[in-house]
Lab assay of single mutants.
Amino acid sequence: MQGVVKVNSALNMRSGPGSNYGVIGTLRNNDKVEIIKEVDGAYEIRFNGKVGYASKSYITIVN
């Protein structure tokens, strides 16, 4: 499943599905991501070869 990031500035990509996990990357508006699955209000995603988590509130599914 594919998604597009929709933010005003940037969205943190984290090592786990919550803000208490470390930041492993930054997503920008209109970045395209692969959605692997939904976990606790976040999506597990793949972006630029990395797998991490981002809030589903800022990712629009575009299948």
Rank of each mutant, 00 (worst) to 15 (best):
41 G>A: 06
17 P>Y: 05
46 R>F: 11
57 S>N: 13
17 P>A: 07
54 A>Y: 01
17 P>R: 04
26 T>Q: 12
56 K>L: 05
57 S>A: 14
35 I>S: 00
47 F>N: 02
52 G>Q: 02
26 T>A: 07
32 K>D: 04
39 V>C: 10
42 A>M: 15
44 E>K: 12
34 E>S: 08
51 V>Y: 08
5 V>D: 01
17 P>Q: 04
45 I>F: 04
38 E>F: 05
4 V>F: 07
39 V>A: 06
18 G>W: 02
33 V>N: 00
47 F>A: 07
59 I>M: 01
49 G>Y: 03
14 R>L: 11
9 S>Y: 11
28 R>E: 09
46 R>I: 14
1 M>P: 07
7 V>P: 03
46 R>Y: 12
19 S>E: 15
54 A>E: 01
45 I>W: 00
22 G>L: 13
2 Q>A: 11
53 Y>Q: 02
15 S>D: 11
59 I>H: 00
5 V>S: 01
11 L>S: 04
38 E>Q: 07
46 R>V: 12
22 G>M: 14
47 F>D: 01
38 E>S: 08
32 K>Q: 12
16 G>L: 05
49 G>F: 03
1 M>F: 11
18 G>R: 04
61 I>T: 06
53 Y>G: 01
37 K>C: 10
38 E>A: 08
35 I>C: 02
50 K>W: 05
55 S>Y: 06
60 T>C: 14
11 L>A: 11
21 Y>W: 10
48 N>R: 10
31 D>C: 05
22 G>Y: 11
18 G>S: 10
36 I>P: 00
7 V>C: 15
48 N>I: 04
27 L>D: 01
28 R>K: 13
40 D>K: 10
27 L>F: 01
63 N>A: 13
39 V>I: 12
17 P>M: 07
1 M>A: 10
45 I>L: 06
63 N>Y: 10
55 S>M: 08
42 A>R: 09
50 K>H: 08
45 I>C: 02
32 K>Y: 12
14 R>N: 07
30 N>K: 07
15 S>K: 07
37 K>R: 15
43 Y>I: 02
24 I>R: 02
36 I>K: 02
28 R>L: 11
35 I>H: 00
33 V>Q: 00
4 V>R: 09
18 G>V: 02
51 V>R: 08
53 Y>L: 03
3 G>N: 01
48 N>V: 03
60 T>S: 11
3 G>W: 03
48 N>P: 00
4 V>N: 03
56 K>P: 07
46 R>M: 12
32 K>H: 12
13 M>I: 15
20 N>F: 09
8 N>D: 14
42 A>T: 14
48 N>E: 13
32 K>N: 09
55 S>A: 11
34 E>A: 08
37 K>T: 10
51 V>A: 06
63 N>R: 11
61 I>S: 04
32 K>G: 04
30 N>G: 15
12 N>Y: 13
29 N>M: 08
52 G>P: 00
20 N>V: 06
45 I>H: 00
7 V>A: 12
1 M>R: 12
59 I>W: 00
19 S>D: 15
19 S>P: 15
50 K>R: 09
2 Q>W: 15
39 V>F: 09
30 N>C: 12
57 S>R: 14
37 K>A: 13
7 V>E: 03
42 A>Q: 15
53 Y>D: 02
35 I>A: 01
34 E>L: 12
45 I>P: 00
15 S>G: 08
17 P>S: 05
16 G>D: 04
9 S>D: 13
26 T>E: 10
21 Y>F: 13
19 S>G: 11
53 Y>K: 02
39 V>M: 09
4 V>Q: 07
45 I>R: 00
43 Y>L: 05
25 G>V: 09
49 G>Q: 05
61 I>Y: 04
30 N>Y: 08
34 E>K: 05
9 S>R: 14
40 D>Q: 09
35 I>F: 02
6 K>F: 06
